[in-house]
Computed example of a mutant assay.
Amino acid sequence: MTVTVQPSPRPRAARSSGIGRLLIAVYAVLALGAAGRSAVQIIERFDTAPLAFTLSAIAALVYFVATVALIAPGKAWSRVAWAAIGFEAVGVLIVGALSVAMPQLFPEATVWSFFGMGYLFIPLVLPWLGLWWLATVRRSERVAAAAEAA
C-alpha cells in the first residue's frame, strides 16, 4: 500500500503571530497606561481639562479594543482591528494637530496630544505599524486561500 503525502498548504499568518505579538504587547501596555492615567485624572481633577481627560479615556478604550481584536481570531475581529487601529491613526493625527495649533484646548496632556510626545511618540507610530501588519496578514490570507482553491 502506497501512501502519498500531500504538502499542506502554507499556514495562514494570524494577527497574533510574529510581529503581531509585539503589537499586542505594546497595545496592552498602552491600554493599561492610558486607562490608569485617565482614571486618575478624571477622578481627581476632571473639571480642569475635561476634553483632554475624556480623550485619554477614549484612547485607552481604543487601545483595549485593538488589543482584543488583534488576539481574537475570525473575520469579524479582523474588521474590528482595522476599525480600531484606523480610528487611532486618525485620532492621534487630529488631536496631535489640534494640540499644536490650539494648545488652549488642552491645558493638560492627553495620550495623543503633541502626537504622543509624552509616550515617546509611540501613539503616532503604532497605528501605522498596526495597519501595515493587518494588511500583511490580509495579503497572506488571500494567498493561502488562492492556494487552497487551486
Rank of each mutant, 00 (worst) to 15 (best):
49 A>M: 02
117 M>A: 15
8 S>P: 07
81 A>T: 04
111 V>K: 05
82 W>I: 13
46 F>D: 04
18 G>W: 09
95 V>P: 08
23 L>P: 03
128 W>C: 06
95 V>G: 10
13 A>C: 07
35 A>E: 07
128 W>G: 07
106 F>Q: 00
118 G>C: 00
84 A>P: 10
51 L>Q: 02
62 V>S: 01
38 S>T: 08
45 R>Y: 06
85 I>Y: 05
23 L>F: 02
2 T>G: 04
3 V>P: 05
64 F>C: 14
132 W>A: 15
48 T>N: 04
85 I>G: 07
120 L>I: 08
106 F>G: 07
102 M>T: 14
34 A>Y: 13
16 S>T: 09
122 I>D: 00
115 F>M: 00
14 A>D: 12
108 E>A: 12
28 A>K: 01
59 A>E: 03
35 A>Y: 05
24 I>H: 06
35 A>D: 04
138 R>S: 14
59 A>G: 05
45 R>A: 14
149 A>R: 15
84 A>W: 06
19 I>Q: 06
91 G>W: 03
133 W>M: 10
78 S>F: 05
67 T>W: 03
29 V>F: 12
144 A>F: 03
8 S>G: 09
87 F>Q: 05
78 S>L: 05
49 A>G: 08
136 T>S: 15
11 P>W: 12
62 V>A: 08
15 R>Y: 10
26 V>H: 05
45 R>M: 09
105 L>F: 07
125 V>Y: 13
85 I>S: 10
